[in-house]
Amino acid sequence: MYVKKQLFYFLLVIILSLLSACVSNVRSIKYDSDLKLETTEGYLLLAVETNVDLKSIHILGAKNIKLNRSDLLKGSNYILVDMPAGDYRIDKITMSSWLGYQYVKLDEEYWSFTIQPGVISYAGHVNVKSSIWSATGYFELNNKSSYALEYMEQEFPNIMANRTLVYEGPGEDGFLDFIDQRFMGGNVE
């Protein structure tokens, strides 16, 4: 009986270690220097507009990541990270309220996006409206491609010189392709 219990705890520690290893804490790229990405990698650009400080946002997919408080302060935040290409979804948003930390699990169907290899995939602007007195709030993933474009041009001109910004958020939108073709000399297939 004692051996069984020991084995149980041992396995539990192993599983928890594996689980925690599955979710990487990531922070937004700060320096405007294009990374040498593998052919199976791309950049993710996600914006978070929130009226309260958020604790974290979990994103699951080809790589599981967690965006942390320092990138999720009240106001507008842009997060640029290099990631393996593939399908992703924003899984949950954790906020602090008067009850302590509360998280909201998001519906996969409405919070999915793709990271394309070799380009900057803009997944949208996560809009959070909540208050510290509330354990929930209003959440929406908005298409604000032009704001994302202005941000990248302003803050990461070197990366933008090498990479194309593409829209991978909800629905279909040809605006960034149009801009690339019309003003950046890109080719749209």
Partner: peptide, 12 residues
């Protein structure tokens, strides 16, 4: 006008 159909995850 196309963006009216694609403005957010709820508006699609």
């Amino acid at each position: 006008l196309p963006m009216l159909f694609n403005a957010s995850n709820w508006k699609i």
